[in-house]
Design a binder for these strands. Structure first.
Lengths: 119, 119
DNA sequence: AGCACTATGTATAACCT
DNA sequence: TAGGTTATACATAGTGC
């Protein structure tokens, strides 16, 4: 978006990608800030920063081994068929209630079992 | 950012705010899409859409009653002292591991208590 | 309400240091 | 590699249907 039009595809060149990542992340954060300010809503961006410090293989393994739970819950489920759709359908509170309910259920189970133990 | 410069403050005018919300949300989603594509990273934006369909009072109560757990965990904790800082410090995986660990601990407790009950 | 337009402000890719 | 500059592409506030 500046001196040249640029294809919207993965930037294979490492330094270039890193630069773009930094610049665009900064811009994105600013946009989120503005949106929250202008409309007084809650919003945040969750960005999984690229792992430039390790070898490609290790990078890959890390990527696979980590980011399981939250990624699944927040990224895939919420973004589902694309971020746009998810944005419209997504309600932060709804997800919060779901999580809370899960924890409540588990906690309840714990308490019930505790009582069983004592009786 | 177009015909006039606009102050970066809450837009009190409802229709205007709604329009801005829609336009900017769309733009934000596009930015997220581009970032994930260009850098092949995982990223998503979580936006709590404004509640225009209810009365101001109801709106307020809803806002208070809902969005507890996830908002706290994701928005306040992660964004902490500001989104910018959180962006830099934030690692999706780290949070995921935290959540996972919590669930694991609870599950472990449940299993232990189950054994106690049986013995 | 929602779309299309467009003048203008903003973000940023390529450079440069 | 990081930070600053600039030409250009993009986002969007205001507007009119």
């Amino acid at each position: 978006m500046s001196r040249k039009k640029m294809k919207l595809a993965y930037i294979t060149n490492d330094p270039k990608r890193k630069t773009t990542y930094k610049k665009r992340t900064k811009g994105l954060v600013k946009k989120v800030r503005e949106l929250t300010t202008l409309c007084e809503i809650e919003a945040c961006a969750i960005i999984h920063s690229p792992d430039f410090d390790s070898q490609p293989e290790l990078r890959k393994r890390r990527k696979e081994n980590r980011q399981k739970e939250l990624k699944k819950v927040m990224f895939q489920s919420l973004s589902g068929k694309g971020i746009l759709q998810s944005m419209n359908a997504m309600d932060l509170n709804e997800v919060g209630l779901l999580v809370k309910q899960n924890l409540k259920d588990i906690d309840k189970r714990v308490r019930e079992l505790s009582n069983e133990s004592r009786s």
